[in-house]
Design a protein around this nucleic acid. Structure first.
Length: 859
RNA sequence: GCCGAAGUGGCGGAAUUGGUAGACGCGCUGGACUCAAAAUCCAGUGAGGCUUACACCUCGUGCCGGUUCGAGUCCGGCCUUCGGUACCA
């Protein structure tokens, strides 16, 4: 073996650890650079290729920045709470804490072998009480500001296992464990009011350097739409109004108090048993079509449904509501699925024209969007059109396409801009202008108002699970919700717990945990039995890294001020919306309570792609996980890391194949052999920073130019996470260095130093070794040197101009660099290919692009 | 369904602003070295046509159409694959 990677890699790993090469001095803020990868979920499986693909190249980028003289902070930690550890416990009886800590130990060992610049003093894990204490503290800060609140929300419930299921555990509507049909069950749960920050989350997009696609996804997720809220009064047939109203159940009262979405309005007098008090509020982005409303649709879950449904419609309504419980939101909103719905027998009054229109319930109205009620305008909305066609509801045109006749029958909904008709005083108005005019009219007459609606919903954080952060709230029969005193934190997660299925929350079965005295009145009370969503843990961990041991605060405020926002955040596209939106929300909240002074947590964001195996995501259950050890033991860490970078564009990922790893291995061996040939070359030369290229011999000129061109390209490519082309440029360079032998020692030293410098980020162990072989004293990362590109050496003397005839390449002609058209033209027309093609033809046009192209258009 | 991406030789991919399609690497073919093999080194390698040869021509970036002197790149319409879809993280 000519490249003893085992010795070299362990030698440098030991050196880095012994010398604390990667300990970051956070008190020095000059040229600070905080590089972060999304932390590790320590499930049963060890690190797989996907982890290496995330961490290796990002570390190379961080090393590159270190070589450029930045004070780089690169921490790592563990996102240690979560569902899989708990499921594993249910299956095997092994306690989540035991399995998680064991996994972390294993993973730490693997991580150290990757040779990353991690500052191990900054390591953290979210399942430690010192960490989750501060989840609880932040929760209480939100609670104080009414940003944490409770309301009813559905969960997936398996009636057989008597347990709550995650979406992932529901397969085709059935429990993945027992196959029982899963139903939706309402539970009273905690929410964070992220919707209060919707506008700020949109504004913030202008302040961050993130991929366009990610920002676009977040924008669409937040889903801002401008329109109007319109109030329709409910009319129930006069003859049977005594039967139409049922008594209010306590749950729906809570709903109305806490929900931001439910449209029902209780009259101030408290009388809610008269139909004239009942109102349906709808949100619409098309108030210009208000005169075309021919029916109203409520979401089946809407609390108003029970109150307005006429007795003879009850059976149908109830049956329909049952059937929709089984559908997922994706199924419900599918535009290809046939529309379904049933009438309630009630009617509503369109405020703008006094028309009495029927009220239906249908699953395409969602309780979570807008007010849960839709005003249906079949002529100008596709879903409404389809629904109206199916149930024979009237379709009335109120927007006319300029060239069509009012009486033409519609074949599909007309959703574009046109002229308003059948709309009383608005007739003749262009529909896009009509929107604001109608809103003004609604407001003047108290029929409604202009409104901005967001698709974004509040963040449900309650989880009916054990392995998470306990929610620091005590429920007292007399005092209600009582927050745990901040001095009493953390509310410790008890070790003793029964994981068996059944019941809503495992913690509820731990008597010692659940039963407490009310902090306010001292009476018997109960702790909240739920834990928090693990996205809470990952929403602020980047702040904790700066001083993970601090016990007096969630994080060091001064360090946070100096070191956030994170300069470079790297993680998968799968986190484009949820994690990255939640963290942004947390950061803005922490800013509002004076703990951080920036608006955004992550200044720059890069995604790594997904590495699949045979087209599928790697997972233990599929059994297609590729183990990196297999390759690191055969080729070494550097080769493996470099191969992952060389495979393709970083943000694209790809299907795993080890074909081609030998190419990278060859490159590494050739590099090592090349340096071995020039042992201690630096000690033998004067070592200038720059040479006058015109004074060099031909061979020297060639390698001198090439190494400068490579340095320029390499810098640009690594900067932008284009590792594949950066490495290709190094391969091109080594191919040219065959002629290095004939050069002077000065030029050899000049070239090899720069080559070793470029190797160091992408193959850190090899880079260090080569740097040392040629006669440097220290580790290149201990004492980074910055090599400037010699710009004068970059420019070639001549360039090949492509000659096209009618856009087709016919030949190329060499011309001096930067020649103008009048210089190139005679060269082009002297070419016999050109004369052959232009002979006897008329030249219509000539297009010249400097240093690139000469195109002749002939007829 | 909705939202967001991707599609280029036998394979991974390159072409950074509309300007010579296939950099770099794998594989393959031939040669050198060797008793032989491996390793290494050298040369060739998109498809088709044509030629004794040098050369030359046509086609070619998922599909259909468009804009342009010129399109992998821009526009319109599809197809396929992948990620997310609010309790996997």
């Amino acid at each position: 073996m000519r490249y003893p990677f085992t010795e070299i890699e362990s030698k440098w790993q030991k050196f880095w650890e012994d010398n604390k090469t990667y300990k970051t001095d956070l008190s020095k803020t000059e040229r600070k650079l905080y590089t972060l990868v999304m932390f590790i979920y320590p499930s049963g499986a060890k690190l797989h290729i996907g982890h290496w693909y995330n961490y290796g190249p990002t570390d190379s980028w961080a090393r590159f920045k270190k070589l450029q003289g930045y004070n780089v902070f690169e921490p790592i930690g563990y996102d240690a709470f979560g569902l899989p550890a708990e499921n594993y416990a249910i299956k095997t009886g092994i306690h989540p804490q035991d399995s998680t800590l064991k996994n972390i130990d294993d993973i730490r060992e693997q991580l150290k072998k990757m040779g990353c610049m991690y500052d191990w003093d900054a390591e953290l894990m979210t399942c430690a009480p010192e960490y989750y204490k501060w989840n609880q503290w932040i929760f209480l800060q939100m609670y104080k500001r009414r940003l944490a609140y409770r309301k009813n929300a559905p969960v997936n419930w398996c009636p057989n296992d008597q347990t709550v299921l995650a979406n992932e555990q529901v397969v085709d509507g059935c429990c993945e464990r027992c196959g029982t049909t899963v139903i939706q069950k309402n539970l009273y749960q905690w929410f964070f009011k992220i919707t209060d920050y919707a506008e700020q989350l949109l504004d913030g997009h202008n302040k961050i350097d993130w991929p366009d696609e990610t920002i676009l996804k977040q924008k669409n997720w937040i889903g801002k739409s401008e329109g109007a809220e319109v109030t329709f009064k409910v009319v129930i047939d006069e003859n049977d109004n005594s039967n139409t109203v049922i008594s209010k159940d306590p749950e729906s009262i809570r709903d109305e108090k806490s929900s931001t979405h439910i449209g029902t309005k209780i009259s101030p007098s408290g009388r809610n048993d008269k139909e004239e008090d009942l109102e349906i509020k709808v949100f619409t982005t098309r108030p210009d079509t208000l005169f075309g409303v021919t029916y109203v649709v409520l979401a089946p879950e809407h609390s108003l449904v029970d109150k307005i449904t006429k007795p003879e419609f009850k059976a149908g309504v109830n049956a329909y509501r049952e059937s929709t419980k089984k559908l997922t939101e994706i199924e419900r909103t599918s535009t290809v699925k046939e529309k379904t719905g049933v009438p309630t027998g009630a009617f509503a009054i369109n405020p703008v024209n006094g028309e009495k229109i029927p009220v239906w319930i249908a699953d395409y109205a969602l309780i979570t969007y807008g007010t849960g009620c839709v005003m249906a305008v079949p002529a100008h909305d596709e879903r409404d059109f389809e629904f109206a066609k199916k149930f024979n509801l009237p379709i009335r045109k109120v927007i006319l396409q300029d060239e069509t006749n009012e009486n033409d029958e519609l074949e599909s909904a007309f959703t574009e801009v046109g002229t308003m008709v059948n709309s009383a005083q608005f007739n003749g108005v262009r529909s896009d202008e009509g929107i604001t005019k109608v809103i003004k009219y609604l407001e003047e007459n108290n029929f409604g108002k202009g409104k901005i609606n967001y698709r974004l919903r509040d963040w449900l954080i309650s989880r009916q699970r054990y392995w998470g952060t306990p929610i620091p709230i005590i429920h007292c029969p007399t005092c209600g919700e009582v927050p745990v005193d901040e001095n009493e934190l953390p509310v410790l997660l008890p070790y003793d717990v029964d994981f068996k299925l059944g019941g809503e929350s495992p913690l509820a079965r731990n008597e010692k945990y659940i039963n407490v005295k009310c902090p306010k009145c001292g009476a018997d009370a109960k702790r909240d039995p739920d834990t928090m969503d693990t996205f809470v843990d990952s929403s602020w961990y980047y702040l904790r890294y700066l001083d993970p041991k601090i016990s007096t605060a969630a994080f060091d405020k001064e360090l946070a001020k100096n070191w956030t926002p994170v300069d470079m955040y790297v993680g998968g596209k799968e986190h484009s919306v949820m994690h990255l939106l939640y963290a942004r929300f947390f950061h803005k909240f922490l800013r509002d309570i004076g703990l951080v002074n920036s608006d955004e947590p992550f200044a720059k964001l890069v995604h790594q792609g997904v590495i699949t195996k045979d087209g599928a995501k790697m997972s233990k259950s599929r059994g297609n996980v590729v183990n990196p050890d297999e390759f690191t033991s055969k080729y070494g860490t550097d080769v493996f890391r470099m191969y992952l970078m060389f495979m393709g564009p970083y943000d694209q990922g790809g299907d795993w194949s080890d074909k081609g790893i030998s190419g990278v291995e060859r490159f590494v061996i050739r590099s090592y052999e090349l340096f071995s040939q020039y042992k201690d070359i630096i000690k033998q030369t004067s070592g200038k920073d720059k040479y006058d290229i015109s004074t060099l011999a031909d061979n020297e000129k060639k390698v001198y130019r090439k190494v400068n061109q490579t340095l320029k390209k390499f810098n640009e490519e690594i900067e932008h996470f284009r590792f594949n082309t950066a490495i290709a440029s190094l391969m091109e360079l080594i191919n040219e260095l065959k002629i290095l032998e004939g050069c002077s020692k000065e030029v050899q030293s000049y070239v090899l130093q720069r080559f070793a410098w470029m190797l160091a980020p992408v193959a850190p162990h090899l880079g260090e070794e080569c740097w040392q072989i040629i006669g440097n004293e220290k580790s290149i990362f201990e004492k980074p040197v910055l090599f400037e590109v010699d710009k004068e050496a970059l420019v070639e003397d001549t360039v090949n101009i492509a000659v096209q005839i009618n856009g087709k390449l016919r030949t190329t002609v060499p011309a001096p660099m930067n020649s103008e058209q009048n210089t190139v033209k005679p060269l082009v027309f002297a070419d016999e290919k050109v004369t052959k093609f232009t002979d006897g033809k008329t030249i219509v046009k000539e297009i010249f692009v400097k240093n690139k192209i000469y195109n002749i258009v002939i007829k």
